[in-house]
Design a protein around this nucleic acid. Structure first.
Lengths: 142, 142
DNA sequence: TTCTCAATTAGCTGTGCGGCAAAATGATAC
DNA sequence: GTATCATTTTGCCGCACAGCTAATTGAGAA
């Protein structure tokens, strides 16, 4: 009861886990995709994903050598849906979340294989949609 | 943004703080009343109350030498109302919460002054509404 | 079978925090 | 003014956990 509630609540306390949940609102993602966006060690991401899964917030699917995670669409415990709804209704305009989604858009332009090989570097050669924040200053100061 | 969210979420992670929130759903309570129900050190309760207040979940009122806390009825930050609603909709049948409410009923039978003087012992001499769990066994085994 | 490699697990370190006792605070009573 | 006393703050201890690197796992490729 209260232990289950605590487990789910704990999953939502950590900023990294909230960022993962917000990313997955757009659909399932491979572990290396999440890793590329968050910029943390693969082991750390994996541990977070395990915690979110235990809390009943995520589900898992294997495809070849990659593992995809998605938001749990079926209530795996009494509190998961309510917390998911709360997160979904929150933080859409948070700077970190916005930046994560921008990186996610870039990640989606790259084949998963490239991400697994090069990690975040796979994004560096992918500026086809320049935005205000990524656009180079015309006269960079040395 | 996400820091505020984290602060409120953190307040809901700890079981003791959830128990306090559930107690206050019935109306405001004095610090020593909460202490008597939870059975923790006064300093610990005070720290929890401060955290809940900082998170925008509680408000404070002084009456004589006692301080009363109540659920924040006006949104003090963007996420407090949603978390309060989630807690309110949860754990009504949790054993710990049920027991807390039973103790709260006993606490309400005792003047606040008695609680401050004797703490939880003030409840021992107050069995006017015997329940299954408090009723004495007719032939106590020595 | 053996090799490869994405993902997980194990082991470690530093930090955050819940619990308590003791000291400080501050409003009320005298 | 001083004393009392509910509450808060401080200082400390032990534990839980986020992060990392290194080792292990296990599914697909050869």
């Amino acid at each position: 009861m209260i232990e289950t509630f605590e487990t789910v609540a704990k999953a939502v306390v950590d900023p990294s886990r909230v960022r993962i949940l917000k990313l997955l609102e757009n659909g399932e993602l491979c572990v290396c995709q999440i890793t590329a966006v968050l910029g943390l060690a693969t082991a750390t991401i994996s541990k977070h994903l395990a915690a979110l899964k235990v809390a009943g917030l995520l589900q898992q699917r294997r495809d070849g050598k990659w593992v995809y995670y998605r938001l749990a669409e079926r209530p795996l415990n009494a509190y998961a849906p309510q917390f998911l709804a709360l997160v979904r209704a929150s933080l859409a305009d948070d700077p970190t979340i916005v930046e994560d989604h921008r990186l996610l858009a870039m990640v989606n332009e790259v084949p998963v294989q490239a991400l697994c090989d090069q990690g975040r570097d796979a994004l560096a050669i992918q500026p086809p949609h320049p935005t205000e924040s990524t656009r180079q200053h015309p006269c960079p100061i040395p």
